[in-house]
Structures are given as structure tokens and as C-alpha cells.
Design a protein around this nucleic acid. Structure first.
Lengths: 273, 273
DNA sequence: CGATACTTTGAAGTATCTCAATCCTTGTGG
DNA sequence: CCACAAGGATTGAGATACTTCAAAGTATCG
């Protein structure tokens, strides 16, 4: 499941004329890129499917990486980092899947996100210099490790990278806000529908099937993420199957009716505002 | 309610030796500062009460501001910016109070946060170049306007500022994650208790009373933020009063029993994990 | 002073949780 | 190969926290 490696072949042309933060950050503008010839093998597909407006800033990291990028393999269940560890590196998920956990003062834990190929982990450590969440592999996984001083240096030297970095960090807020919306104003069935559609979309962006998903997380973890009990999640899976929206066998989910799932989101919102 | 102006008199000494991102970002290190003598009047108290570890990065902005900083006044209900507007500036709240609104594809809106003196608004625009949320004044308010090119330039020239900026943007994620925790694993009474305690703490950091709060937002807005109906919020206020935890008269809340409120958070969490 | 917006309280409904039992899958050791 | 344990998933039945609907109270403002 090696993916997104096409970005390794790219380096943003830092000599591009740049004047305003807003313009450059938008990603709406075409970046002038040049081929990178530093010995990094061109793994993976050469897909251009990822929409620029949706870019997570992954490129900003791969662009910083030297020819001998540190790579780390993790087994399922292994911690990539723990909440409270001091920030040393950022991690670009290369293969596999992670969950991030946050905890409150009383020790309650909650899944705050799932990270798959192309996602970047660790940026929340920038706020205080210590990671605010823990990242745990949900299956055997690989990450590219980028030391934060490397990023720091690259960002300082190349304004464009600085912007990409800021965009990346800010996009974490956006993601969190999306989840916030999920928890704050959707009911259980809407949350699960949104979750499945989101997952499907991200897999498609990674060049995988949008309809046949293999869930890497347990029902419990889905429930924690969606603010629901495990039984509720299970019941909803069954209900969706009964309605012909999906097909489920344990962790294998097949989306049969995209329109129907989207309709779950449209029909009957909790608050009418 | 002019506050936090003490920061205007400070400018981070950019010549300070800086080597690692982690160290500098933490805010745990003492910053070498020098007095700024550029004609900015020293308004407000000279309080040093804000804990360094809690710093939101407000200083990073005030430090970028030139002697003739643009200031903007807003009336209650006025939009500071709207979701979709292209990012032009960041805003440091000087006086007053704001709410931020996010909306999903179906048009459902939700309050995603409240911003008071010392908070910075607009950073979520960094992700795409357009604000992802709307900011609306809850009372007559004043903000310092910092054009993003100004910040960009300052960050590029002064590595320390760059870090502070990154820390600020990342801290938005932390805030959102906190809210996420609230919505995902706390029950209604716990959410309101957490909300009140958080508000109290922030007011204290601004040098205001920690026990006598004047809520700037309506029950509806609190409900939207906490993922609750307005009636539930109202009932909980009444319940807290009946228990002697607080005193409420409309928007005036007096916290009578901090220990009791904190106990609401400790006792009986929803999930035992 | 009436209109409007916000708040409070009650009563009934229901979505979701909680408790409990069963089932399935996988791995382990006899 | 089978028995058994352990972790996860499913399903049912009852409890309840929160919503929804409804009505009335109270500020605020032109």
C-alpha cells in the first residue's frame, strides 16, 4: 500500500514570485514545480487525482526531505508518539493507518482522528512543544520521519514552504472543526453516514476503491470518534445494511448506495437553524 | 475593557540565539525581550498574569505591528469576516467578544468558539486562503488588524516569530480538540460545567473576576457550542443554581462553588475507558 | 406601549445508552 | 484436532438523558 510517492518527485520552485500570503496559501494558484533529481526512487503511481484546494500540505514535507529520508515501521498497536512527549519530528503516513487519541484531565480518552496515507501527524505538538495527542498504529504501517528542525530550516529558507506549512497546520483546525460539527449537530445515523462517506473519499484520493472499504478501526474506536456507544455503531451498521445502503461483514464495508448515504445527511437535520 | 495592551510594549528580541523548534515553541524558555519605543501608547494595566505555557501567540502579532496599527471597531452583531471571504488579515481581540460560526454543506450552522480579549481570530483562513468560519461580534468590540503580508514578512525575517505563529495556529487545533472532547465524551451537565470553568479561567487571565461572569452570548449560542438545545442549557443553569453551585440572573453568572463545579466534571464520566 | 427577542418551566416523546446474553473469529495450549 | 480463552461484534430489552412541543414569563427597543 505504498502511495503518494509521486510527491517525492516534486519540489516547489522556491524562486516563484510570491507576494501575498493569501494568494500563495490558497493552493488555487498553479505552483511552478520542477523535477527533483536527488536519487529518491520514484515509487508508486503517478496519479494527479488530489485536488489542489484539498491539499493537506503533505508536499511541504516531502519537499523538505533530503535524499536519505528516515523511515519508520510500526506494528499494529504500536505508539508513534505519546501525548506529552516533546516534539521532535513530524510524520507523513506512507502506508497503513493511525488513530490519534486525546485525553482530558480526568483521564478520559477519545479518538480524535484517523490518519491514512498522505496524512501528516504530529503538528499539534507545535502549540506547546509537546504532542497533545497520542498516535497509535491501527495496522502495520510506515511513516516518513521529518525532524522539525529540518522543516524549520526549509520553511525559513523558502517562503512558499513556510506558507504550505502554515496551511497544513491550519488545516488540522479545519478537520477538527468538521468533527466538531459532526458531534455537535448531527444525530447518530448522520454521523456514521458522514464518517463512511469521508472515509470513502479519502481512500479514493489515495487511489483506492471508494466503495469497498476495509475498516482498520474497531467499532469501539469508531464509536469513540463519533461520540457514540459501540452498540449504537453496530446497530447502525445493521440498519444501513437492512436499508440496502451498504454491505457489511465485520470490517469489510461495501457502499452500495452513495446517493442514499448522502441523503441520510440531507434529510432531517437536528437543528433547523 | 481595554486589555492585554502590555504586550504592545514588548518586542521579542529576534537576535536571541535559537536552534530548535521544540525549545523555542514551548514557551517554557524565558524570552529575551527589549522595550519597544515606537510611539505606541501604553494602554491598560501592566499585568504579567498570563502564564507563559498558556500563551496563545498573541505576542507574535503585537510584535509584528508597526507604530500605526490599524484598529477596527465593531458593533454588536457585526461580522468581522465571513466564511468564504479571502484571507486578508488576522485580528487580535482588544476588547469585546466574538463568536465563530462554521457551517456544513447542508447549511447547518454551529458556534465553534468564543473569542475574547487576547484571542486571535482568522488563522483558520491559512488552510485554503479563505476563512472557513465566520466571526461575529457579540457586543461592541475592538480588534487590532494585522495584514497577513505583515505577519508573513515578520515571520520570515524573525525565526522566533515564525515559531510563535506556528504555535498560535497549532493552538487552534488544541482548542478545537478540547471542544471535541467536550462534545464526544461528556454529558450535558458536565459540558456546561466545563464551559463555565473555562470561561472563568480565561477571564481571570484577562485580569477580570473569575467568579463574576457576564455572559456575552445567548443561551442559544451556548447550546449550539455545547451541542445542546437551548432548553437544556436553561434547565442546567437552573439546576446548578438549585444546587448552590452558581447564581444566575439572565446573563450574569456568579460562581459560588468552584470545587463543586469541578466535581461535576470528575464524578461519573460517561465512558469509563 | 406594543413588538420582538430571549429565557424559563412543564410534559411528553424518543434517540441513545446501559445492561445482558449470544455469537463469531482468532489464537493458544493440551 | 479439539477445547478453551479472549477480544470483538451483534442483538434484545429496559432505562434515561436529552429533545421536542407548548405556554408563559421577562427583558429590550423603537
Amino acid at each position: 500500500m505504498e502511495q503518494r510517492a509521486a510527491y517525492l518527485d516534486r519540489l516547489i520552485d522556491v524562486s516563484a514570485g510570491d507576494t501575498g500570503v493569501a494568494q500563495a496559501l490558497g493552493g488555487h494558484r498553479e505552483w511552478r514545480v520542477r523535477h527533483r533529481d536527488d536519487g529518491i526512487p520514484a515509487l508508486g503511481r503517478n496519479q494527479e487525482s488530489r485536488a489542489p484546494a484539498q491539499a493537506t500540505g503533505y508536499e511541504a514535507f516531502t519537499a523538505c526531505m533530503g535524499p536519505r529520508t528516515l523511515r519508520r515501521r510500526l506494528q499494529s498497536g504500536e505508539n508513534l508518539y505519546r501525548s506529552g512527549d516533546s516534539l521532535k519530528s513530524f510524520y507523513a503516513v506512507r502506508s497503513g493507518c493511525f488513530k490519534s487519541l486525546i485525553a482530558d484531565a480526568e483521564g478520559r480518552e477519545q479518538v480524535s482522528g484517523f490518519f491514512m496515507g498522505g496524512d501528516v501527524l504530529g503538528t499539534d505538538g507545535l502549540a506547546t512543544g509537546r504532542y497533545a495527542s497520542s498516535a497509535i498504529a491501527l495496522e502495520d504501517s510506515t511513516v516518513d520521519v521529518v525532524h522539525c528542525t529540518t522543516v524549520e530550516r526549509a520553511a525559513r529558507e523558502h517562503p512558499v514552504l513556510q506558507r504550505r506549512l502554515l496551511a497544513l497546520v491550519a488545516s488540522e483546525t479545519l478537520k477538527a472543526n468538521g468533527t466538531l460539527m459532526l458531534l455537535g449537530s448531527l444525530r447518530a445515523r448522520e454521523r456514521l453516514a458522514a464518517f463512511l462517506l469521508n472515509l470513502s473519499q479519502r481512500l479514493r484520493q489515495n487511489g483506492e476503491s471508494a466503495s469497498d472499504l476495509r475498516l482498520r478501526m474497531t467499532r469501539d474506536e469508531i464509536g469513540s470518534y463519533l461520540g457514540l456507544q459501540i452498540e449504537t455503531v453496530s446497530r447502525l451498521f445493521s440498519a444501513f445494511r437492512a436499508q440496502g445502503l451498504i454491505d457489511v461483514h465485520k470490517k469489510d464495508v461495501c457502499i452500495l448506495d452513495f446517493r442514499g448515504l448522502e441523503k441520510v445527511l440531507r434529510v432531517r437535520g437536528r437543528r433547523q437553524a
